[in-house]
Design a protein around this nucleic acid. Structure first.
Lengths: 146, 146
DNA sequence: GTAAATTAAATCGTGGGCGATGTAAAATAA
DNA sequence: TTATTTTACATCGCCCACGATTTAATTTAC
């Protein structure tokens, strides 16, 4: 039987893996001045779209488990960006809200990210094709339940 | 001025990020029975292609810095998969080699990964397009020096 | 209404990633 | 040759990821 040795350069997983770490590094440079990490920025993105969400709702949208999300939220509370209040209807659930500080940051942070993307020509046609293929891929992953 | 609020669903970085963690999870399930993580598997992929590489050479191929690679290599040495020997020509450099155990694992591990990919129809045309776009993207990242 | 199952969060342990710093050896410059 | 710079690797601290377990509240079943 021939060798089943898949070469590194042929592996989709590796290209995706590298692309992800490349993105994380790029975003880190943009977000660093705001004392913000990429996952923390994702949490802000979610809450800027809709404030006052439960931990679970944020986790669902980002695909974060509680073991990942909880420490992130705690750090962002310590940063003065988030508030956590127990839900009155369901005492198990906690509502996460943006502070005024985090609301005011919406514009400048989005602007900084936007300018970086522009300066990289990231908003071109190629990115759209990639986007579509990746959405298909991720939908596929969710279907097959890994 | 209008809001620069980029929506979560529109962000390429997020799709790439999710795809990467989806891949990592899928591979973890395949590699788990071998007591192997995804980054450790990447190191094996490199060494199965070419044995007796320096730390630096492995790091270059995978895009790992020493702070990432060193602990991984140490764990794989502890697992009995790798050997580390000081180079005779350059005493700063260390040669990483596969043990017999790691060589014997090449076939079964590759087989397990291959079968998983087959069962997912991952080797279809769509993946090839995605692959090309991602390679372009990663080449772009390397050019622009982040 | 009580017991059992489910759910929302918190916690823990292991293993990445990565920037920054440290150390020693090798290469280069003077 | 001696001094400077560069290079290969090690270490550290911080922050994810994630599976597994725990706790408490809610829901469902009986």
């Amino acid at each position: 039987m021939e060798k089943k040795g898949l070469k590194l350069e042929q592996q989709l997983c590796f290209e995706v893996y590298k692309a992800s770490s490349n993105f994380t590094k790029m975003y880190s440079r943009v977000l660093g001045p705001f004392q913000l990490t990429f996952p923390q920025y994702l949490v802000l993105l979610v809450l800027w779209e809709e404030d006052h969400l439960l931990m679970k709702e944020i986790g669902d949208r980002l695909g974060f488990g509680t073991g990942t999300l909880n420490p992130i939220i705690n750090r962002m509370i310590a940063q003065g960006r988030l508030l956590k209040e127990q839900s009155t209807e369901d005492k198990r659930a906690w509502v996460i809200s943006l502070t005024e500080k985090a609301k005011k940051e919406h514009e400048p942070i989005s602007q900084a990210v936007y300018e970086k993307l522009i300066s990289c020509n990231f908003l071109d046609v190629n990115a759209l094709t990639l986007m579509k293929n990746l959405k298909d891929l991720n939908a596929f992953f969710e279907e097959m339940d890994l």
